[in-house]
Design a protein around this nucleic acid. Sequence first.
DNA 1: CTCGTTCCGATGCGCTTGCATCGGAACAGT
DNA 2: ACTGTTCCGATGCAAGCGCATCGGAACGAG
Lengths: 202, 202
Amino acid sequence: MPRRIDHDSRRRRIADAVCLLADERGLEGVTLRDVAARAEVSMGAVQRCFRTKEEMLVFALTHVGERITDRVRARLAASPTRSARVSLGHTLAEVSLLAEEHRAEARVWLAFVAQAAVTPALGRVVRGAYDELRALLVRLITEATDPPHPRPEREADALLALADGLTTHVLIGRLSPEAALEILDERLTRLWEPERPGTRRR
Amino acid sequence: MPRRIDHDSRRRRIADAVCLLADERGLEGVTLRDVAARAEVSMGAVQRCFRTKEEMLVFALTHVGERITDRVRARLAASPTRSARVSLGHTLAEVSLLAEEHRAEARVWLAFVAQAAVTPALGRVVRGAYDELRALLVRLITEATDPPHPRPEREADALLALADGLTTHVLIGRLSPEAALEILDERLTRLWEPERPGTRRR
DNA sequence: CTCGTTCCGATGCGCTTGCATCGGAACAGT
DNA sequence: ACTGTTCCGATGCAAGCGCATCGGAACGAG
């Protein structure tokens, strides 16, 4: 048997390097050479781990996606005693990557999402991550409302889109994280208001 | 005097070519040569119009941004008789670029926004476009609500972020344009409901 | 120790990139 | 017709790209 190398850890290491570079210069700034340098491995090692650049990007994207969804789940599991409303709020804040220390992750995610709109392979991964988050939100919404929300899926889609948009606007410097949190919170508050069409309309 | 060339129209022609390519392959697929070919001019012409590639991208981004804001304004001006609620709805739908024929524009915008998070020059342009749209929304919200909305700016930010997020999710194939419209519409309906905290909360 | 196998660093190839250069085409004024 | 000015197509260049190749290092089994 030949020498033992932990491929998985190396792949993760490379994925982290991809994220670092994508955060600094965007996805187009990610080249095999620079990735290898950042991961402190040779180009040959990178090529052994991933047959093509796209394969590497897909892996890195999956890696980030899992890190995010895992963190969201963990945060949820860590405080099961809170009210459903608070859980939902914390979950959404986590999804929005508003914390300062996750800003880089948010930039990377945004870069990947944009590319995912034109690269099918990336699109599948991105959709997978969102599907997972949505399922989680659906569950939270159902648990949190009494009587149960009539369309938790629709509500989850709305919240997910809002969180995403807020992240983007924070990233381009148009919104402060605090403002984004406020908006998210206000939106959640309305979740517990019954619909009353026909009032105060011009 | 030398031969007369309409620089502005050529610049716009080149900007359109940039958008076409960005739509197909993302921003990294935009190269000077391909742009020149798509615009059916020589590379020399492109270089004469824009000193650097970044200058070209900034111009193209500005071009798209103006096209979008202009269209939104036009749609608003074209039907001043409608109720404020309807105007707001149409405006937001336009901002979200949900119409099939604007899908390409949406992809281009998303690509630029993602890059804007790491390229200051692009960031300024993107922020400018959003500022304009926000001002417009603030005005519409103020006009549409009675009594006047207490924080129209915050509301405008929320709507803008939601519209943006919805656009993104439509682009990656997670939401149908119809679903996005529904979410937008429901969100608008709630604009006319008074806040009633404390009800039906678990 | 000697294989047999697995791994990878170095190197190079073919191509593309953004950008600089420049000779000459295209005109307006005289 | 000549000149002066403005423009641009073609070409070249250094750098960087993704990827293929391969000799030898590293190690376990016998």
